[in-house]
């Protein structure tokens, strides 16, 4: 396998998460294939990628659930493979399905969970934070899907983690529940919590993340602020309008000037005028569409 042989940068000791050359093999397939990543303390980082790209495997190595086959990893200054109780006390994990099918009430579940941690939040306050105060006395199994998910988040944050992992936290939410969840994440960020979020919803990544990383074929192909991902900031804008009964479009690097010339051509309003930049979804689909086959070949060879 040919790979650029520049000496790898050392792990960043100040980062919440620092990864160099992470490799995880399943059989003879590299699910994660030399992944580098730094997440700063206090940052909200969204990891995007198609199913099978190595997203979940990477996160589970960072969470301490999975061993790795190569590379250096530090999470809050500790190798997750060696993370003991003290290290786990500083980490919160919200899994895709976290049990919750319980005979205990929400408050009882949170109180039990809090008892595992040295410096936990007040369970009642956490219920308030996730909007489940009215369900404090309801059993876990009686909750609706969205409520259950909020309980999962509550269980993840009751230990007052410095770093929170969120694995597709809003799957199955209705739009309003997602908005509520987003404001919960923002308030956690304001409390200084570092978050690593995996999601399939690009609007969610754009809404919440300070930076976005795209993973395909087991490697991080780009990391950027959402507005700049895939060269999106520099991408030409598309101006569209209706003229002579037909829809017209023009891709331009100077949309303001172009709209000014349009405005001069029409006596009043330009009919159906719209100016659009590529959405995060557009650039994301382009990125994974282009890089997936090439990466797959590289892995297979």
């Amino acid at each position: 396998m040919t790979r650029s042989s520049a000496p790898p940068a050392p792990l960043d000791p100040d980062a919440a998460i620092s990864v160099r050359g992470l490799v995880k093999r399943y059989g003879d397939r590299n699910a994660v294939d030399g992944l580098d990543l730094d997440i700063r303390r206090g940052e909200v980082f969204a990891l995007l990628g198609p199913n099978g790209a190595g997203k979940t495997t990477t996160v589970e190595v960072l969470e301490g659930y999975r061993s790795r086959d190569g590379g250096d990893v530090q999470v809050l200054g500790v190798d997750p493979a060696q993370g003991g109780r003290r290290w786990k006390s500083d980490i919160g994990i919200v899994l895709q399905s976290g049990g919750g099918d319980s005979q205990l009430t929400c408050l009882e579940l949170l109180t039990a969970q809090a008892a595992y941690y040295p410096d936990a939040r007040d369970p009642a306050e956490v219920l308030e934070l996730v909007g489940l105060t009215e369900k404090a006395g309801a059993r876990g199994r009686s909750l609706s899907g969205g409520q259950r998910r909020r309980l999962d988040v509550a269980l993840g944050i009751v230990g007052k983690p410095a770093l929170l992992f969120l694995d597709e936290p809003t799957t199955g939410f209705d739009p309003e529940a997602r908005r509520q969840f987003w404001s919960l994440i923002r308030s956690l960020r304001d409390l200084g919590t570092t978050m690593l979020l995996t999601t399939h919803y690009l609007d969610e990544a754009e809404e919440l993340a300070d930076r976005v990383g795209v993973i395909t074929g087991g490697r991080l192909v780009e990391v950027a602020v959402p507005a700049a991902l895939g060269g999106r900031g520099q991408a030409p804008a598309v101006v569209s309008w209706t003229e002579d009964g037909a829809r017209r479009t023009e891709a331009t690097a100077t949309p303001t000037a172009f709209v000014a010339t349009l405005a001069a051509r029409f006596p009043g309003e330009v009919p159906d005028l719209a100016v659009a930049r590529p959405t995060l979804e557009d650039v994301y689909l382009q990125m994974i569409g282009q890089s997936t086959p090439a990466e797959t070949v590289a892995v297979a060879s």
Binding site: Y65, L95, G98, Y117
Partner: peptide, 17 residues
Amino acid sequence: TERSDGTLKHLAGTPMP
């Protein structure tokens, strides 16, 4: 049941001994 519904995995990710 607790293994298949994720309860065990959840507990393993906490500092519970």
